[in-house]
């Protein structure tokens, strides 16, 4: 089932945007003047591409299908 374990990186945005929401739904402390919630969601928006990139990197490292067949 977990033949593409790096796909788990794709859950990162769900964690950043949704799972931790109760912890970040606040105005203070402000970061660079931004209310904390806005700062956090901006951070999450910037980290999402990084998470997808990590998933992509995992896929790139997989052997080709025929090579996998040969190894098995």
């Amino acid at each position: 089932m977990l033949k593409r374990a790096s796909l788990l990186w794709l859950l990162v945005p769900y964690v950043l945007f949704l799972a931790v929401l109760p912890l970040v739904d606040r105005v203070r402390p402000t970061v660079l003047g931004l209310p904390f919630l806005f700062f956090w969601l901006l951070l999450a928006t910037l980290l999402t591409p990084v998470a997808v990139w990590l998933a992509w990197r995992g896929d790139r490292r997989r052997p080709r299908r025929e090579e996998r067949g040969r190894a098995a």
């Binding site: 794709l10 990162v12 769900y14 945007f17 928006t45 999402t48 998470a51 997808v52 998933a55 992509w56």
Partner: peptide, 10 residues
Amino acid sequence: MSCGYALGYV
């Protein structure tokens, strides 16, 4: 949109 783009990877 962020979560959807990530899911769109698959």
